[in-house]
Design a protein around this nucleic acid. Structure first.
Length: 796
DNA sequence: GATGGGGCGTTTTTT
DNA sequence: ACGCCCCATC
């Protein structure tokens, strides 16, 4: 591939591609560039040797195994800067792919900081989906689409599938559209076209009609000139396979390819990359197999584990120097993750002092856990710690509520990441649907969404007529509506309403190029009666919805035009929750990947919740290992303090369930962990034990050993095979791993003596009648004899 | 077209 | 236990 021959005849060239700088051509120029003393470049100077190797290994496939906090983004951005600085490629000849818009934004910013405006020219820096869109728009006609195709989100997808199911007379009670959507998503993740769906899998839906329905859905998408998210990857793959000439253009274009978070790629993304990488083997993938936590949505850890076989001659660079966390935290995380099999194997090397040990603490129930953590945060705050540097990372979002409630009571500012997102709110989707119809009158799904919102007397009957007309005449819904208005078939009332709507859309469409989009949006929402609908609504949320609409209009301003805005929204479904006042962050472990905080609280480390029972049930050992990686991600978010909690009782689906500490606690190395159990450690605010709320682990012999009797653990052991103790293996004493004693919470013997007066949160005052290790039998004055663990009582 | 009752699901989430 | 979605009913 000769560089000079590719230009200026590259059919991909666009006006914005043309840069005045002469192209550095040929081997000689490259060699000369390479020979330049790299030390002169100060962007390289702050790198450690491994990072530097990752940056400077420019030829051939490269896998950078970057452990948590080892400077992954830095390597990626510096590598781009290096390629550009050496003149090996121009900005638009580098393909840099990320998973999220946030990551893409961050990369662009950081390259910009290194190089100034060169980052602007990086048109091929983006998410898999945004780059897929770009490619597909250029060659839409080859995929049977117009380049103005719309991108459907999950909601539209479901609606469309419902139509398909209805048309096929399939009872969507028995076979819900959601489920089909889920299946199709899965197939698309694995790059399976309808004809490729394994017979066995298609069997699973609507009596074997799964693949057929998938095909019908795809046909409907084409009719609507629409694609779903999966298609943004699949269509380019098809395109590349069917049109080698097109692929060839991209081969010539992308001289260097970089992929972030490679461990999260699914089959489709992998194939997409492979096709593109055939042109240039200058493919650099960065990832961490230990941070693969998206298996449940199609990510294949295998991709990263297999890299050197997929790309022969690949160089593998390991980044193990961790600059983020202190020693105990890293040791704990490393030791934990070492329990996983099938890793490429890295050990994080601390670069700073040991710091504080990871703490493990137990609470009576989840409310207690929230109170204790709240208190600890207040204590940190009073010592001058910033709330912005504190995060609570939970396994499941239902855990968040208790913290929120507690923090509201305390008046502690917090922010929740996740939850229903801006663009998923009903009012925003409605508004967007109006705008979509204005921008592309053929968008039938959008039209359908708002045809009777607000209510204008166009109910099921009218909608059915429009749909039928649309199908009969093979025209979009809006056009069908127009024809119906002109014809005799509609009753007077709906006819008048529909006429008004069609005219309104005509009026708005005429404004698209003449009025700024935010102004247009305002008018649309006003004139359609949509704003009015919420103004009149007396429900509690109405006010907030109106605010959201205002926010939407405001957010449109910076865009060039309506089209640009709509494209942005379909691909960038995040409205950055702006950092406001100093506040504690509450989010899921999944959402925390890539972030870091001085202090991290990790509540809910209990069997069933974390590892989550469903992960174990559905995916066995693989599920357990993914959960363990999640625990690893959680711990490695902490710079200086990691504080793990478990509660002995938790309300799940409304029922109080007693729980057992997570096996992950047993997997933390004792040397790096402080198990906090003495009542004095937190003022002895414990609630009651046993009795009314059932047994807790403290009621049994060998507290942590009891972990190994849970059904989930047994299942995991069974699926793990011969390497480990068999089903139901009983252990006695603290667990050891590789000869090391790991965390054990068993207090050798109680500080309380027979006859001592004690106080218990739930049962009140009582007298100790028997001491057995750390378990006491107490005669409570009111509650009678109870067996409790000494850490749950304090001296009265 | 609004209202209420019944049924169902209830891990993680991006694009 | 709870919320959400769908449908039936008025």
């Amino acid at each position: 591939m000769s560089a000079s021959s590719a230009y200026p005849f590259d059919p991909l060239s666009e006006a914005d591609d043309v840069v005045p700088a002469p192209r550095p051509g040929g081997i000689a120029a490259r060699a000369a560039a390479m020979a330049r003393p790299a030390a002169a470049a100060d962007y390289l100077s702050g790198l450690n040797p491994e990072q530097r190797e990752a940056v400077e290994t420019l030829d051939g496939p490269l896998l950078v195994l970057a452990g948590a906090g080892t400077g992954k983004t830095r390597v990626l951005t510096t590598r781009i800067a290096h390629i550009l600085a050496l003149g090996l490629a121009r900005p638009y000849e580098i393909l840099a792919v990320t998973f999220t818009n946030k990551a893409a934004r961050e990369m662009r910013e950081r390259v910009g900081k290194l190089l100034g405006q060169a980052a602007e020219g990086m048109q091929w820096l983006g998410t898999f989906h945004s780059i897929g869109t770009r490619i597909l728009r250029r060659h839409a006609e080859l995929a049977g689409l117009a380049s103005s195709f719309t991108i459907l989100d999950t909601d539209d997808q479901i609606r469309l599938l419902k139509q398909v199911l209805a048309a096929e007379n399939i009872d969507d009670k028995r076979w819900p559209a959601r489920q089909l959507a889920f299946a199709i998503d899965g197939w698309k993740n694995r790059a399976l076209a309808p004809k490729d769906v394994p017979a066995g899998e298609a069997q699973g839906f609507a009596n074997g009609r799964g693949a057929e329905l998938y095909a019908l859905y795809q046909a409907r998408l084409k009719q609507l000139n629409a694609v779903d998210f999966g298609d943004l990857l699949l269509e380019p793959i098809k395109l590349f396979r069917d049109h080698p000439d097109v692929l060839e253009q991209y081969h010539r274009r992308f001289r260097y390819m970089l992929v972030d978070e490679y461990q999260d790629t699914n089959v489709a993304q992998y194939l997409w990359l492979r096709l593109l990488a055939r042109g240039s083997t200058n493919l650099a993938c960065v990832g961490d197999d230990d941070q693969s936590i998206y298996g449940w949505r199609g990510a294949e850890v295998e991709n990263i584990l297999r890299f050197d076989r997929d790309f022969p001659g690949a160089k593998v660079v390991r980044l193990e120097r961790n600059y983020r966390s202190t020693g105990h935290i890293l040791n704990a995380a490393s030791h934990l993750i070492a329990h996983n099999q099938g890793r490429l194997g890295k050990t994080l090397k601390p670069q700073t002092e040991l710091g504080d040990k990871v703490t493990v603490a137990g609470a009576w129930d989840s409310g207690e856990e929230a109170r204790q953590i709240g208190d600890e945060i207040e204590a940190l705050q009073s010592k001058g710690h910033k709330l912005d540097e504190i995060a609570i990372l939970v396994r499941a979002s239902f855990q968040m509520r208790e913290f929120e409630e507690r923090f509201i009571t305390l008046g502690l500012p917090y922010r929740v990441i996740g939850g229903p997102r801006f663009y998923e709110r009903a009012e925003i989707r409605d508004a967007m649907a109006y705008l979509r119809v204005v921008a592309s009158p053929a968008d039938g799904l959008a039209f359908e969404r708002i045809v009777n919102t607000p209510k204008r007397g166009l109910g099921d009957a009218a909608l059915k007529q429009i749909t039928e007309r649309s199908r009969a005449d093979e025209v979009p819904m809006l056009e069908a509506a127009r024809r119906l208005v002109a014809g005799p078939d509609l009753k007077p009332k709906p006819k008048a309403a529909l006429k008004e709507l069609v005219q309104a859309f005509d009026r708005w469409a005429a404004l698209v190029d003449n009025v700024p989009q935010s102004e247009l949006a305002e008018r649309v929402l006003e004139e359609s009666g949509y704003t009015d609908m919420w103004t009149k609504d007396r429900s509690a949320e109405a006010q907030g919805r109106l605010e959201n609409l205002k926010e939407l209009v405001r957010s449109m301003e910076p865009f060039e035009n309506l089209r640009g805005f709509l494209e942005h929204v379909s691909l960038v479904m995040d409205a950055d929750a702006g950092r406001g006042e100093d506040a504690v962050t509450i989010m899921t472990l999944h959402a925390a990947k890539g972030l870091e905080y001085d202090t991290v609280f990790l509540p809910g480390w209990e069997e069933g919740l974390f590892p989550h029972q469903r992960a174990l049930d559905e995916s066995g050992r693989a599920g357990l290992e993914e959960e363990r990686r999640l625990a690893y991600v959680g711990l490695t978010r902490a710079r200086r303090r990691a504080k793990v909690w478990f509660a002995s009782n938790r309300r799940i689906h409304g029922l109080w369930q007693s729980s057992i500490p997570s096996r992950f606690l047993d997997e933390l190395p004792e040397a790096d962990v402080d198990v906090i159990e003495a009542p004095a450690a937190y003022g002895g605010a414990y609630g009651g034990m046993g009795g009314a709320y059932g047994a807790s682990r403290f009621d049994k012999a060998e507290p942590f050993a009891s972990t190994y009797d849970t059904p989930g653990w047994r299942r995991a052991q069974e699926s793990r095979g011969a390497a480990s103790p068999g089903p139901g293996a009983r252990r006695s004493g603290p667990m050891t791993i590789e000869g090391e004693l790991v965390a054990s919470s068993s207090a050798p013997r109680s500080a309380f003596k027979e006859g001592a007066r004690v106080f218990h949160q739930k049962f009140g005052n009582g007298t100790v009648v028997e001491v057995d290790g750390n378990k006491l039998t107490v005669a409570f004055d009111k509650a009678g004899h109870k067996r409790v663990v000494d850490s749950f009582v304090k001296a009265a």
